[in-house]
């Protein structure tokens, strides 16, 4: 193999898009273990309800199903945003980004509503290990969604003010990776926490 072909095969140091994508995948690998630990903690504690309410008493499955569906839909709009970005249709991309963020916000509002309900029904972080692990797991996921929303809105805004011309497509793709990941984690959480009750 000649040196020239070697040089061509190797992604050059300026292929920023490739580098950032690799980094995001690597980072998400770490996040898998992060949520894995939180979910494991929850599985250990899900029956330890002490004197407080248990899963069957407080979860409102239809409500959470709807908000889960909304979050799932936001992955679709995210795909649309990425699609527009790859066609360099920046206006359309911004619309989809904001739509994705809005769906995220709706999901978060649902979570806030749900948390208030649970607290009223007597489940707080210090009611039982079940309560502690439930709130910390879903709360940490919510924080991830919130970070995602901020990233989406910031990207849309920077695109709108024209501060982010060349890299737009690439940024959207990376945020998309993150966003899809957070969605997938929610599917796992929804299944394990809400649907698989014991």
């Amino acid at each position: 193999m000649s040196i020239d072909t070697l040089a061509q095969e190797h992604p050059g140091p300026h292929d920023v898009s490739h580098i950032r994508k690799v980094a995001m995948w690597v980072f998400l690998g770490s996040e898998v273990l992060f949520f894995g630990s939180l979910i494991t903690t929850f599985l250990l504690y899900r029956t330890r309800i002490g004197d407080g309410p248990g899963a069957a008493e407080i979860f409102d499955i239809p409500f959470t199903s709807v908000s889960s569906f909304i979050l799932l839909m936001s992955s679709l709009t995210m795909v649309m945003a990425h699609h527009s970005a790859s066609r360099k249709d920046w206006r359309q991309m911004r619309v989809w980004l904001v739509a994705t963020a809005m769906l995220g916000i709706v999901f978060l509002s649902g979570q806030v509503f749900e948390f208030t309900e649970f607290v009223e029904e007597g489940l707080t972080v210090s009611t039982s290990p079940f309560g502690s692990s439930f709130f910390v797991l879903t709360g940490v996921h919510g924080a991830h969604v919130a970070v995602g929303v901020l990233l989406l809105l910031a990207t849309a805004l920077m695109s709108f003010t024209g501060r982010l011309r060349d890299g737009e497509g690439m940024n959207v793709e990376i945020i998309g990776l993150y966003w899809h990941f957070v969605d997938v984690v929610w599917i796992v959480i929804f299944t394990v926490v809400y649907l698989m009750q014991v």
Binding site: V26, G29, S30, E31, L33, F34, G36, S37, L38, T41, Y45, V125, S126, S128, P129, G131, S132, S133, F135, V136, V140
Partner: peptide, 26 residues
């Protein structure tokens, strides 16, 4: 990359047990 998130979860639990009354290790 794979081990730090695990202890981070543990440390968060310790911190919350100490400060907001969660019951992870009680």
């Amino acid at each position: 990359l794979f081990s730090l998130p695990i202890i981070t979860v543990g440390l968060i639990q310790v911190f919350l047990d100490r400060n907001i009354g969660t019951l992870f290790f009680d």
